[in-house]
């Protein structure tokens, strides 16, 4: 408790905590749908696109979020389109786009500012990255995601479970896929500055996979993902403060541990 009180006395840690909890909640909710639709790698791909966009924005001195959010949203919609057409397999498309934008980002950076601490913090995350503006955006975003999720919960389920059936019963499937893609894109741009481009996708994938070990209903998995994600983020941040380790990595390791625990529970149950 004392440690937590001590942490809360630093304004930048409070910001990291509030922003991070909001982002982990959004990422985990969207993650359930993405993981089940076999789009797990989309988070990874988008974070690299975001890295590329941020490097370019920095090189030209533009506002980072104003540049990267639209770029990543476009990339997300494009990725879904490519998958829908089926001409290039989606995993290959994601790998191509993610490596491509990472490469562009690195070239732009080395030609202009060089590999500064800012760039390294985008790669591996920095707890100092959360500005007041970011926290505000994260809170607004998480309210939007939560609201959408509650209102469209049944449609999200139908679209995730069986796209063609949903389409045949008159659900506008492409619209819901686009909404999910856009929200994922915004979540990733906001989250990657704290978690790092290399690690942000874990916030999308881990909680859903963890919850699927134990829960048998879609609702159970969704609720559990949200809870697991927020709890893991909190523990990860505390550990990062206590042992002075990078926050992003620490959160991922706690998520990994949670996966291990749920996996054991599943094993014991099946006996």
């Amino acid at each position: 408790m004392a440690v937590i009180m001590e942490m809360l006395s630093y304004p930048f840690l409070v910001r990291a905590l509030v922003g991070g909890i909001c982002i982990s909640l959004c990422a985990s909710l969207l993650g359930v749908s993405l993981v089940l639709k076999r789009y797990s790698m989309i988070g990874d791909g988008l974070s690299h696109v975001s890295f590329g966009a941020l490097s370019i924005a920095m090189a030209f001195g533009w506002a980072p979020l104003a540049v990267s959010i639209p770029v990543v949203v476009v990339a997300a919609v494009l990725l879904l389109r490519i998958t829908g057409n089926g001409k290039i397999k989606s995993d290959a498309a994601i790998a191509m786009i993610s490596a491509g934008s990472l490469a562009i980002g690195i070239i732009v950076t080395s030609l202009t500012t060089g590999m500064t601490t800012d760039v390294s913090s985008y790669m591996f995350g920095s707890i100092l990255a959360m500005s007041k503006e970011d926290v505000f955006l994260s809170v607004v975003l998480s309210l939007v995601v939560l609201g959408m999720y509650v209102i469209f919960y049944n449609k999200v389920f139908a679209v995730t479970f069986d796209e063609s059936f949903a389409k045949a019963t008159g659900v506008n499937v492409p619209a819901y896929n686009t909404i999910i893609a856009v929200l994922t894109a915004v979540t990733i741009v906001l989250g990657m500055r704290m978690m790092g481009a290399m690690l942000i996708s874990s916030l999308v994938i881990f909680p859903a996979l963890t919850s699927m070990r134990v829960f048998k209903s879609f609702r159970g998995v969704v609720i559990s993902s949200g809870v697991v994600s927020v709890v893991c983020f909190f523990i990860g941040l505390v550990l990062s403060y206590m042992y002075s380790i990078p926050a992003g990595a620490s959160v991922v390791v706690v998520n990994l541990a949670a996966f291990g625990v749920f996996f054991l529970v599943q094993m014991v149950r099946q006996r």
């Binding site: 639709k37 449609k155 479970f161 949903a166 008159g170 209903s217 879609f218 998995v221």
Partner: peptide, 19 residues
Amino acid sequence: AQKDFPATVEEVVLSGCLG
């Protein structure tokens, strides 16, 4: 994707009412 989908039979059946 449906092979390991976590959903109860009730949730699946109910989703037919969506239209």
